[in-house]
Write a protein that binds this DNA or RNA. Structure first.
Length: 872
RNA sequence: GCGAGCGUGGCGGAAUUGGCAGACGCACUGGACUCAAAAUCCAGCGGGGUCAAACCCGUGGGGGUUCGACUCCCCCCGCUCGCACCA
C-alpha cells in the first residue's frame, strides 16, 4: 500500500525515470512469503528428539482462538520468544518452541448459541485464522507439534489427569498425594456406601454442596476469581448453593508457597501468589458458651491479645448461631442472616464502610480472663475463613474497634507501645507489636512481655489447658472445578440409580462430547448435556447398570494445566507424555522460559503448578515445578496512551501493519518500543523509524539491481569496524538472554550508522551482522544471507562468536576531575596502571593549572576511567 | 489501607560493580540533491549563559553516605499494577 504512490509517480513522469534515483526499499511483500514458504518446505523449524544436544524449552502461553483473530499485543510476547528460540538454536541448542490453542470456553459457546454454528466448527475456523496470522509474522513454531485442547485425542489425557486427581488422597504426614487404593480406612466402617462416602471425602477431586457464584444469563457458575470479569461485562452474579466438583488445591498450600523460592519469576507475580495462598500462623481457641454445652472455636493471629477479647463474632452462616441464639433475639438474628445470604461476598465487602451486626443474646466465657463476653453475629466475619468465628479485640484490631464503637461494646487495652509512650485506645486501635499490659490470670501472665514472646507464652498456656492449639491458616480455597456448560471437557464419571458411581477406566477414554443442536442452558441449572437423552440415561456396558453421565464439564483452566507436557510428545496415544521425552525436555528445571501476560500471574500459574505437583507425587514428572523462568510482556496501549479498545477507536490491526511495513518491521518495532515488561504506547511514527533502519541495513549489502553491492569486499575490518562489529555481537548475545531487545536493536542501528558511510564494507562484518540480526528480522536476514551467496538458511549457521581481543583498543579516553568536577579529558594507553595514569594526567595542562598554588588533599585514580584530584 | 514496581529532554527510552547523564529512535531545525515535492544523505538538537568559549543548573522533592550518586540509605510527593473486613 505504502509503495503504490511512488510507483505511480514514476509512471506518470516517465521522463524522470533515468534521472531520479529510486531509493531502495526492502521488498518485503516478496521476501516475506518467499522465506515463510522456504522454512515450511525445508522443515527449518522441525524439532528433533536428538537427546544428545542440550535442550532449551521456550513456551508462549497459548492463545484462546477468538473470532477476532490476533490483536497487536499477541506479536509482542511471540516475537520475544521467537527471537530467543532462533538464537538458542543458532547457539547449538535443541529448541522446543511449540504453539497450540486453548479452545474450550464460553465465548465460542455463546457464539454457537446465537448462530447455531457448532463450537467445534467455529473453533476450527478461528484456529485457521490464527495460524495464518502467526505464520504471516514468521514465527518459528513447529506446527507438527500443535495441540488443541478441544481435540478428543488431547482432552482424553485431560480427563485421564482429572481421574488421577480423583483417585488420589493427600497424606498429610508425608505431605504428598498417594493412590486412593492406599488410603487407610477405619475398621469401624463396614457398610459399602459408608465406605464409598469415606473415600470420596478424602479424594483430591470431590463433590461439594456449597454456595457458588451463579450467573443466570451465562447459565453457569463462576469461580470466585472469575466473578469480577463477568460483572464488568454487565452480567449479574448471585450466591446459590449448588452441587459442584472441587479440587483440593488447599492440601498443597504449603508446598505451593515454599516452592516459590528459587523460581526465576517476576517479584510481583511471586508476591501475588504468596498473598493468594495467604499463610498466617496463630492459634485456634475454644470459648465455652455460658450456660450451654456448646463451645465456639475462633482463629486468631494475635492470641497475645486474648485478655482484651471483649466479645465474639460469628459469621452469619456459622452453624452454631441457631443453637445459641436466645428466644428474644431469634427473630432479629434470623432477619439479619437472611439479609446477609442475599449479598454476594463482593457486595458484603464493597458496602463494608459501616459495620452491621446483631446480638445473639448469648454469652461466652473468655478462657483467659474469665470474663463473660457477648456473642454477636456480623457479616464482617467470613464463614469460609478460619473457623468462621472470631474473638474480637477492639483495642488492637481496627475492624473490631469500628464494630465496638458502632455498638457500644467495651474496649480494653492489653498491649502498650514498646517505647513507653501512651495511646488513646478509645480513639483508635493500637495494632502494632508492643508490650503486654493487664494480661494476667492466676496461671499465666503476659505483662511486660513483647508481642512475639507473649504469643509464644499464651499459645503454650492454651495448649496446656487443652482449650486450643497453635494453627496455620491459609486464605487459599479449594478450586471450584465444574461448569454448567457444554463446551468443555466432560467429567468422566457416571452415576447409577442406586446412588453409587463409577469413574471411567483408562481404556474408556476419551469420553467424547456428544453432538447437540441446542447450546442454550437447560434451564434447570444444568448444562446442555442434561438435554441429551443418551447422556443422562444409558446402560453401562461394564456393570450392566442404568446410568447417567456427569453433566458438568471442566473449566477452561483444565486444558492449560498440563499442555506444556503434551508438547514434549504430542502424538502419543499410550500416555500423556513418554517418560524419556518428559525427562529430556523438562530437564532439571522444567520450561526454561515461559512468556505470557501478567493476567495469568495467579490462577493459571497456580493451577498448573498444582497439577504438576500431583503428577510429581505419582512419579509422572520429575521436577517439582513446571516453569523455571516466567516473564510477562507488557501491554501495548493505543496511540493516545489509553488501553486499546474498539469503542475508543485506537485499535491497531497487525494485518494492516504487516501489509504496509512487512513482518520484520512489526517484529522489530514491537521489540524496540521499550522494555518488554513495560506497558507502552503505540506510535506509528516509530514504525517509520524502524522501516528506515531496515532499508538502511538492506542498502549496506544490496545494490539497485537487487544483487550483492559492489561495496561488499573480501577485506578485513579496520580496528574501528571490528570494535563496532564485536560490540554488536557481544551486546546482542547478552541482551537476548536478558530479554532486553530494545537495546540490541539500538546497537544494530549503531552498526548500520557506522558502516553506511563506508565505501568498502568488509564481507565478514556484513555476514556476521546478518547473522546477529536474523533472530529479530528473519525474512530480511534470510534474503541478505542469500544475496551474500549462501545457499542454506541463515538459521542453520552458528551465531557469531565474540572475539574479546577486538574489543580492546590501544587507547582509552579518561576523565580528568578536579574536586570531583569534570575539567577535561585525555587519551591514555588502555593498559596504563594507576601510576602511569597519574603521571600522564598530572602532566596534562588542565590538572597542572588546577593544582597550581593549591594543596593536594587526595587523589582518586580508577584505571581506564578517571583521575580525580581533591585540592584546596 | 496492605503488597509489588516505577518517576531521566518535546516524546519512547539508554546508562556492568556507584565513575563522561541523555545511547538509539521519533519529533523538530538547518543544509545537500530536486523546477518542486517525496525519498535519501549530511549536520544540529536538556536548560541557562556567551559572538564564541569559559562557566552554572539538571535524572519527582528533601536529607544522608561517598573523592564521586540516575544508581546505595532514610523521609515525602506522584503514577501504575495487584490485593483488599482473611481476624
Amino acid at each position: 500500500m505504502e509503495s503504490e504512490p511512488r510507483i505511480y509517480a514514476v509512471r506518470i513522469l516517465p521522463t524522470f525515470c533515468t534521472t531520479v534515483k529510486t531509493p531502495m526499499h526492502v521488498p518485503f511483500s516478496t521476501i516475506d512469503p518467499k522465506w515463510q514458504q522456504y522454512w515450511a518446505d525445508h522443515h527449518i523449524h522441525r524439532v528433533d528428539d536428538d537427546h544428545s544436544k542440550p535442550k532449551y524449552y521456550v513456551l508462549d502461553m497459548f492463545p484462546y482462538p477468538s473470532g477476532a483473530g490476533l490483536h497487536i499485543g499477541h506479536p509482542e510476547g511471540y516475537t520475544a520468544t521467537d527471537i530467543v528460540a532462533r538464537f538458542k538454536r543458532m547457539c547449538g541448542y535443541n529448541v522446543l518452541h511449540p504453539m497450540g490453542f486453548d479452545a474450550f470456553g464460553l465465548p465460542t459457546e455463546r457464539y454457537s448459541m446465537t448462530t447455531g454454528i457448532p463450537p467445534a466448527m467455529a473453533t476450527e475456523a478461528n484456529i485457521a485464522t490464527f495460524k495464518k496470522q502467526l505464520n504471516m509474522l514468521g514465527f518459528n513454531y513447529d506446527w507438527s507439534r500443535e495441540v488443541n485442547t478441544t481435540d478428543p485425542s488431547y482432552y482424553r489425557w485431560t480427563q485421564w489427569m482429572f481421574l488421577l486427581v480423583y483417585n488420589s488422597w493427600f497424606d498429610e504426614a508425608q505431605q504428598r498425594a498417594r493412590p486412593i487404593a492406599e488410603l487407610p480406612i477405619p475398621a469401624t466402617i463396614t457398610d459399602p456406601l459408608d465406605r464409598e462416602a469415606y473415600i470420596d471425602a478424602k479424594r483430591l477431586a470431590f463433590i461439594a454442596y456449597s454456595p457458588v457464584n451463579w450467573c443466570e444469563a451465562l447459565g453457569t457458575v463462576l469461580a470466585n476469581e472469575e466473578v469480577d470479569e463477568w460483572k464488568e461485562k454487565g452480567y449479574t452474579v448471585e450466591r446459590r448453593p449448588m452441587r459442584q466438583w472441587m479440587l483440593r488445591i488447599t492440601a498443597y498450600a504449603e508446598r505451593l508457597l515454599n516452592d516459590l523460592d528459587g523460581l526465576d519469576w517476576p517479584t510481583s507475580t511471586v508476591e501475588m501468589q504468596r498473598h493468594w495462598i495467604g499463610k498466617s500462623e496463630g492459634a485456634e481457641v475454644r470459648f465455652n458458651v455460658d450456660g450451654t454445652e456448646h463451645a465456639i472455636s475462633v482463629f486468631t493471629t494475635r492470641p497475645d491479645t486474648i485478655f482484651g477479647a471483649t466479645y465474639l463474632v460469628l459469621a452469619p452462616e456459622h452453624p452454631l448461631v441457631e443453637w445459641i441464639v436466645s428466644a428474644e433475639q431469634r427473630a432479629h438474628v434470623a432477619l439479619y442472616r437472611d439479609a446477609a445470604s442475599m449479598k454476594s461476598d463482593l457486595e458484603r465487602t464493597e458496602l463494608a464502610k459501616d459495620k452491621t451486626g446483631v446480638f445473639t443474646g448469648a454469652y461466652a466465657i473468655n478462657p483467659a480472663s474469665g470474663e463473660r463476653v457477648p456473642i454477636w453475629v456480623a457479616d464482617y466475619v467470613l464463614a469460609h475463613y478460619g473457623t468462621g468465628a472470631i474473638m474480637a479485640v477492639p483495642g488492637h484490631d481496627a475492624r473490631d474497634h469500628a464494630f465496638a464503637r458502632e455498638f457500644g461494646l467495651p474496649i480494653l487495652q492489653v498491649v502498650a507501645p514498646s517505647d513507653g509512650t501512651t495511646v488513646d485506645i478509645l480513639q483508635e486501635a493500637f495494632t502494632d507489636a508492643g508490650v503486654n499490659v493487664h494480661s494476667a490470670n492466676e496461671q499465666v501472665s503476659l505483662n511486660g512481655r513483647a508481642t512475639s514472646e507473649a504469643k509464644e507464652t499464651i499459645a503454650t498456656w492454651i495448649e496446656a489447658q487443652g482449650i486450643g492449639t497453635r494453627r496455620v491458616q491459609y486464605k487459599l480455597r479449594d478450586w471450584l472445578f465444574s461448569r454448567q456448560r457444554y463446551w468443555g471437557e466432560p467429567i468422566p464419571i457416571m452415576f447409577f440409580d442406586d446412588g453409587t458411581k463409577r469413574a471411567l477406566d483408562e481404556d474408556e477414554l476419551p469420553l467424547v462430547l456428544p453432538p447437540v443442536k441446542e447450546f442454550k442452558p437447560s434451564g434447570t441449572g444444568e448444562s446442555p448435556l442434561a438435554t441429551v437423552p443418551e447422556w443422562v440415561s444409558f446402560t453401562d456396558a461394564k456393570t450392566g447398570k442404568h446410568a447417567r453421565f456427569e453433566t458438568n464439564t471442566m473449566p477452561q483452566w483444565a486444558g492449560s494445566c498440563w499442555y506444556y507436557l503434551r508438547f514434549c510428545d504430542p502424538h502419543n496415544n499410550e500416555t500423556f507424555c513418554a517418560p524419556d521425552k518428559e525427562a529430556y525436555w523438562m530437564g532439571d528445571s522444567g520450561v526454561d522460559l515461559y512468556m505470557g501476560g501478567s493476567e495469568h500471574a495467579v490462577l493459571h500459574l497456580l493451577y498448573a503448578r498444582f497439577w504438576h505437583k500431583v503428577l510429581y507425587d505419582h512419579g509422572l514428572v520429575h521436577t517439582t515445578e513446571p516453569f523455571k523462568r516466567v516473564f510477562h510482556q507488557g501491554l501495548i496501549m493505543g496511540e493516545d496512551g489509553r488501553k486499546m479498545s474498539k469503542s475508543l477507536g485506537n485499535v491497531v490491526n497487525p494485518d494492516d501493519v504487516v501489509r504496509e511495513y512487512g513482518a520484520d518491521a512489526l517484529r522489530l518495532y514491537e521489540m524496540f518500543l521499550g522494555p518488554l515488561e513495560a506497558s507502552k504506547p503505540w506510535n506509528t511514527k516509530g514504525l517509520d523509524g524502524i522501516s528506515r533502519f531496515l532499508n538502511r541495513a538492506w542498502r549496506l549489502i544490496v545494490n539497485e539491481e537487487g544483487t550483492l553491492s559492489e561495496s561488499v569486499q573480501p577485506v578485513p575490518c579496520t580496528p574501528e569496524q571490528d570494535l563496532v562489529l564485536h560490540t554488536t555481537i557481544k551486546k546482542t548475545r547478552v541482551d537476548i538472554d536478558a530479554l532486553s531487545f530494545n537495546t540490541s536493536i539500538a546497537q544494530f542501528m549503531v552498526f548500520v550508522n557506522e558502516f553506511t558511510p563506508a565505501t568498502i564494507r568488509p564481507r565478514v562484518a556484513m555476514e556476521q551482522f546478518v547473522q546477529c540480526l536474523a533472530p529479530f528480522a528473519p525474512h530480511v536476514a534470510e534474503e541478505l544471507w542469500s544475496v551474500l551467496g549462501h545457499t542454506t538458511s541463515v538459521f542453520l549457521s552458528a551465531y557469531p562468536e565474540v572475539d574479546e581481543s577486538k574489543l580492546v583498543t590501544s587507547e582509552v579516553e579518561i576523565v580528568l576531575q578536579v574536586n570531583s568536577k569534570i575539567r577535561g579529558k585525555m587519551m591514555v594507553p588502555s593498559d596504563a596502571d594507576a601510576a602511569t595514569m597519574e603521571a600522564l594526567a598530572f602532566a596534562h595542562p588542565v590538572l597542572a593549572a588546577a593544582m597550581e598554588g593549591t594543596t593536594l588533599r587526595k587523589k582518586v585514580i580508577v584505571p581506564g576511567k578517571l583521575v580525580n584530584v581533591i585540592v584546596s
